[in-house]
Structure formats: C-alpha cells, structure tokens
C-alpha cells in the first residue's frame, strides 16, 4: 500500500502538485534575475545578455535544470488536469445556489483557469523566444543584410561576415569566437516592434496578472499540502507568499513596457 500511496492517492497528487509548484517558484526567481539584465542599455547590455544566454544554453548543469523545469511544468499540468477531473466527478449534481465567495478567495477557486492562462502564455512565450533561438532562421530578417555565410566546422557553426551591419543581424559572436543567436536583439526587437511591441507587452502583462493570482494562492497552498503548517510560521509563510505573488510578476511585467517605452530603439 505504501508504494501506491505515494503515487496514486489523493494526497500524493497534492504532494506532487505542491512540490513541482514550489520548484517552479524557484525557477521564476532565476528566470527573473536573468531577465532583469534586459533593463540595462547600450552595447554592453547586448554583450552581457548574450553571454548569459550562451551560458544558459550550453552549461550542462543548467541544461539538466531546464529539463527538470520542463518536466515540472508538464507534471504540474497533467496532475492538475487529473485532480480537476476527479474533483468534478466528486460532485456530479451541483447546487442551485452556491456561494463560495462567502468562505473562500477567488484565486483559490480558480487555480485551473489561471493555470490554463499561464500554460497558454508559456506556449506563446516559448514560440517567441525559445523557439526563435532553437528553430528560428539564422539569417537576419532584414533582406538587405543577408550576407552571412554559415559553415559548419567540427559541429560548431562558424560565420563569415562580409561587412554586415551587426545591429540588424540576429547573429552574435561571443568573446570566444563562437557564434550564437542574438537573443538580446530578438527580445528587444520583439517588444520594440511598432505594430506588435505594445500588444506583446499587454499580453505579457495579462499573463503576469494570472501568475500573480496563481502564486497568491499557490505559494502558501504548496506549504500546506506538504504538511508545513505551524502557527509560529504561518504568518511568515503567508506574507512571503503574498510578497512573492506581487513582486515577482510585477518585475517580469515591467520589462516589456520598459523596452517599449524607455529603452533606446535599435
């Protein structure tokens, strides 16, 4: 019984939900720390961010961490769907009159809805940047600047550039001479796009509001599900949770608007 208890029981589903959720909170902190570098301006900012992006895509430890993160998201989503289906089955006939607002918070009752918004955002976000990094065209989007010639040498792509405008190119040559996608430029251009920049910023803002409400309930709820509930620490956990739910999404949400309105146009 003990073995299936940690996989199949209702409580096990809560443990996994809490464990993956709290791990993803840690991921948010790391991701935010990286993203805040986008607030810097100038050529140094581009170098710094792209070196950081290279580290994040090449370091084996980071690679393992990113796999764990993707697995956590997947597990969190699947577990959430299974729990939601079970919960629906638990009350096949609903109430004519039901007033949950009198005894519980909106966010706590809408974790599934908020999670769905967040999942949709993750897909959009991955297409925007991760997909662009992984599968995007190597050439610059500017037709007049396609002058780069790519040669594969010992599995490492090396580019030979012929008098091309670095700023409008999506290829970045690192200090060590390796060449990577210019994630900095991809990002800045996305949010500075005259037609789409502001729309993207608003889409990201909506997603961050959803994440904020999701965290507002999820952070403290994760501790409760793992059995960490003690009168001595509850207030502290709750306050940290509320602070986390406000500060982290707020800082994330500022970045696209800052790039659109404040940062020098490139």
């Amino acid at each position: 019984m003990a073995k299936s208890a940690l996989l199949k029981s209702s409580l096990a589903k809560k443990y996994w939900m809490a464990f993956t959720g709290l791990f993803l909170c840690l991921f948010l902190v790391g991701h935010l720390a990286g993203n805040l570098q986008l607030l810097a301006s100038g050529e140094g900012a581009r170098d710094q961010f792209n070196e950081y992006a290279l580290f994040m895509t090449s370091n084996p430890a980071v690679r393992i961490l990113s796999i764990v993160t993707f697995a956590s998201i997947l597990f969190h989503v699947i577990d959430g769907i299974i729990i939601t289906i079970n919960n629906r089955k638990a009350r096949p006939k609903g109430y004519v009159s039901f007033k949950p607002s009198t005894n519980s918070k909106w966010s706590s009752r809408n974790m599934g809805v908020l999670g769905t918004i967040i999942l949709a955002f993750i897909v959009i976000h991955l297409i925007n940047f991760w997909g662009e990094m992984k599968f995007g065209e190597w050439e610059t989007r500017d037709e007049s600047n396609i002058e780069a010639v790519h040669v594969m040498e010992n599995g490492v792509a090396v580019v030979e550039m012929e008098e091309q405008d670095q700023t409008s190119n999506l290829i970045y040559t690192t200090e060590s001479g390796a060449e990577v996608k210019d994630l900095y430029t991809i990002t800045i251009k996305t949010f500075q796009d005259p037609e789409w920049g502001l729309i993207w910023a608003i889409i990201y803002l909506i997603a961050m509001i959803a994440i904020g409400f999701h965290l507002y309930h999820g952070f403290g709820s994760g501790f409760q599900s793992l059995g960490i509930n003690h009168p001595k620490y509850n207030t502290f956990v709750r306050r940290v949770g509320v602070g986390f739910a406000i500060i982290v999404p707020l800082l994330f949400a500022i970045i696209p608007f800052y790039i659109y309105f404040v940062l020098d146009k490139i």
């Binding site: 809560k14 729990i83 079970n86 949950p100 005894n103 918070k105 009752r109």
Partner: peptide, 10 residues
Amino acid sequence: GFGNCTNTGA
C-alpha cells in the same frame, strides 16, 4: 469518491 483538497479553506 470524495474530491481532492485545493486548500481554499472553505
């Protein structure tokens, strides 16, 4: 066949 806990506190 009871449902799971979402910690709503209701």
